[in-house]
Computed example of a mutant assay.
Amino acid sequence: MINLSKMSDLSSPEGFALDLYAAVLEGRSLADAVAPLARALETSTHAVHLMQYEAGELRESRCDGGGLAADVTAEYEGHWIHHDPWALAASRAGEGVVNLGRVVPMEAYRKAAIWRDWKAKRDGAFHCLSALMQGPDGTVGRIAFHRSVRAQAFGTAEEALLAPLFPHLRRALVAEARLSAGGWQTARAMRAGFAALPQGVVLMDRQRRIVLTNPAIEAMARRGDGLALAPEGGLATRDPEARQALARAVGSAVAAISGKVKMMPDAASVALPRPDHAAPYLVQALPLKRVEAPGMPEGFCGVMLMVSDDTIRPRPRAPLLRQAFGLTPAEASLAAALAAGRTPAQHAATRKIALETVHAQLAGVRRKTGCRRLTDLMALLGRFAA
């Protein structure tokens, strides 16, 4: 029920709107600026969310809470938002005032992990009334007002109070999103940088929950031949000894973040066996202490797992080999093919040339590299990366 005695906190819609715009322009907390509205709605907490979606997938989120502890907003922003039925509903609901209790049935919400495993233990937000904004660049803005499970659900009276203020709330969210645009761009740049790495990358917060992965580690996990992605701990392996070593490595990195250890022990490097007896995956656990890099959450502390797969090491390319050994273009092409595992006959068939021609080119490669035997040549080519 609306608290009429606190309606005076809003003064006039125009004055309330001006304070919203001033908060954005001055860099003040938008969550603080909507506090008078939260008091009139008799909420337990409220929050301002900006969410950035790419191809329908939530990539980045920012949360500014009113009445919420900093560790709670950080935990929500870093993990639970990805498992929140309200956030999913907000991304699909369009713009306007939305009573999420009508969109996500209460019984379904009680069964969701975010309520069962997190909120219920703290008597967290159970009812939610939101003002939603959808941006053309995949940005979703949400000013959410919450009530606890013991309070009355939001109804038509609260929706009616919010409706005339929605245009102002929307403009404030749009302005906030535009000011954050540079942050979204740097975050995308960071992901692109990780995506370019041949090594697998798993970035975790200090609670050991995955924050980011790159395509290389996702491809390794899909192969299912020695490692898998785990929501907590970053990586999983079926080998008991390797599993314990990996847990020790991550634990050492977390301890290093807190200053409990000064140097990383040898356990920070772990080999994960593969069932086909191929070379194991090599994992390094690296502590990240208050990283202030573009695209990273402010003051981020966490652990990065770097995973190498020696079976897919990059092979040398023809231009590099030509420059290194003074080869002709044809000789360099043959050398690159040999380094990639092809035989002289296969190279001849691919290039549609006679096998005798390939043997003549191979003789030139051996002479210029100083390798009399083919095994020596292969060992030499293996030292070069693309």
Rank of each mutant, 00 (worst) to 15 (best):
residue 329 P to D: 09
residue 329 P to R: 08
residue 292 E to M: 10
residue 341 G to N: 07
residue 288 L to R: 01
residue 311 T to D: 15
residue 306 M to Y: 08
residue 283 V to G: 03
residue 296 M to P: 07
residue 330 A to W: 07
residue 290 R to Q: 13
residue 322 R to H: 10
residue 317 R to Y: 12
residue 302 G to K: 08
residue 337 A to G: 06
residue 300 F to N: 05
residue 295 G to E: 05
residue 306 M to T: 10
residue 293 A to S: 15
residue 323 Q to M: 10
residue 291 V to H: 07
residue 315 R to Q: 15
residue 339 A to T: 03
residue 313 R to T: 12
residue 334 L to T: 04
residue 290 R to L: 12
residue 287 P to N: 01
residue 289 K to C: 14
residue 310 D to G: 03
residue 327 L to A: 07
residue 323 Q to V: 04
residue 314 P to E: 13
residue 339 A to N: 04
residue 307 V to W: 01
residue 306 M to G: 07
residue 318 A to M: 10
residue 303 V to C: 02
residue 314 P to F: 07
residue 342 R to M: 14
residue 320 L to Y: 10
residue 307 V to E: 03
residue 288 L to K: 02
residue 311 T to W: 05
residue 331 E to I: 02
residue 304 M to R: 06
residue 315 R to K: 15
residue 325 F to V: 06
residue 321 L to I: 04
residue 291 V to R: 06
residue 305 L to T: 05
residue 298 E to Y: 08
residue 341 G to Q: 08
residue 307 V to K: 03
residue 345 A to E: 12
residue 314 P to A: 12
residue 295 G to C: 11
residue 310 D to F: 12
residue 333 S to D: 13
residue 303 V to Y: 05
residue 323 Q to A: 15
residue 306 M to C: 05
residue 294 P to H: 05
residue 329 P to V: 01
residue 300 F to W: 02
residue 322 R to A: 14
residue 337 A to M: 05
residue 300 F to M: 02
residue 303 V to K: 00
residue 293 A to F: 14
residue 340 A to Y: 04
residue 312 I to M: 02
residue 314 P to W: 04
residue 346 Q to R: 09
residue 318 A to W: 01
residue 342 R to A: 14
residue 333 S to T: 10
residue 289 K to W: 10
